[in-house]
Design a protein around this nucleic acid. Structure first.
Lengths: 217, 217
DNA sequence: GCGACTTTGTTCCTGCGTTCACAAGCGGTT
DNA sequence: AACCGCTTGTGAACGCAGGAACAAAGTCGC
């Protein structure tokens, strides 16, 4: 019995595969049959050689002299990323950002299903966002257990993010995406990924000012 | 005349400096006088040696045997990142995500000032968010020119993001932060930074499932 | 005043990601 | 059937980030 995926796929490659998947879906909708690595790389904003190397992690999936078959490659990447399987997610903190995520249709088509939206503000509870209802935070553990949710998203203010993280981990969540501007600590076996919007903006601004100093042209 | 910043600072270091700045601000508010690299690294979630290497890009700014003086280091990092100077930003696309960004108080304290919020929906125009008023998109070029905005944020749907990007670049914006799920192309001299929320979630989910396969324990 | 401890700043090294360049393979054409 | 052009897949080199270990330096205690 050979194992179909012998080695681990680098994290940077996984991130790009998700981008390729989006481009391929768009091409497939446009009725495109095949694409070359050069064209696909241009659409994704990466180097053609790097794209081929990324795809090589999935095994040979192109035809030399022709290119990649759009539909086949899309399904291949979707299978590797696990898009077809539905993943139960919970989201805590229904502010503007949390509402944006809950309402974003792109998650549903990628295999993510929000099985619970939570907040502490009574004004928020009962609101319907993206087809789901906001529940009081007290019900977090019950919903996580009942739905078998393994993914949690935190969009709360910074001061309560750690306590939410602890509760999620204790309830059985294994992967946490944190938008709160704090560094969370989680027990072993639970990995946390942080997205800091203000850091992104600050890096962008710094690179811009650094470019001005380096190249006064 | 020696140049105060002889070399360029790596991008990864810049991102971490922003995190250190936040931690240091929090420590300063708590009345803390000095910190060691180990403690600061733990709070930021990085390796102590890496933190010292990051800080070495600013020149010597600690005292051996003691640690770093909290207030001094905070001001030093703030100066390098250019926090004290106010940067004019424009934001196009006042949906949930755009509202979240416009309303986020963390930007103002980091030197970013939104001088214009724009949308095409007449229902949005005139709304006040985070102390600013939403304007029709037609006024984008005028506001960018008048305020000298060099930073633009795109939180529009994917299909109009490229046209907004083009208009921003033509109007004088030099740095663009793109939240729309498309790869934008901009003229030389304008750099685009992309944040894709669904990609982040997909990477997280994949790492979780890969971990289960690799370590069945 | 001197020694020892603590902590920074630096240097080396290992591993990873990215890029370039080439061989292998397939389709179309004559 | 053989040749030619095109594209994939892979191997090698380069550059960079991350981690560990060590020397320099300053402070505290005696």
């Amino acid at each position: 019995m050979i194992q179909p995926r012998p080695r681990t796929i680098p994290e940077a490659t996984v991130a790009r595969l998700a981008v390729y998947l989006r481009v391929l879906s768009s091409l497939a909708d446009g009725g495109r049959g095949t694409v070359s690595s050069g064209e696909l790389a241009a659409a994704a904003g990466v180097n053609p050689a790097g794209l081929r190397k990324d795809l090589s992690h999935l095994g040979p999936c192109g035809v030399r002299g022709v290119g990649y078959e759009v539909g086949t490659l899309r399904d291949r990447i979707a299978g590797v990323l696990g898009v077809e399987r539905s993943r139960a997610c919970v989201l805590v903190g229904i502010g503007n950002l949390g509402s944006a995520l809950a309402d974003y249709a792109g998650f549903g088509s990628r295999g993510f299903e929000f099985v619970g939206l939570f907040d502490v503000a009574v004004a928020r509870i009962g609101q319907r966002i993206g087809g789901h209802t906001v529940h009081p935070l007290d019900e977090l553990e019950q919903v996580v257990g009942a739905a078998g949710a393994t993914i949690g998203v935190i969009t709360t203010p910074a001061d309560v993010a750690q306590s939410v993280c602890d509760r999620m981990a204790a309830a059985g969540v294994r992967s946490i995406l944190n938008f709160a501007p704090v560094t969370l600590t989680a027990p072993a076996g639970v990995d946390v990924r942080k997205v800091d919007l203000s850091v992104e903006l600050q890096v962008l601004a710094f690179l811009g000012q650094q470019r001005l100093v380096g190249e006064p042209a």
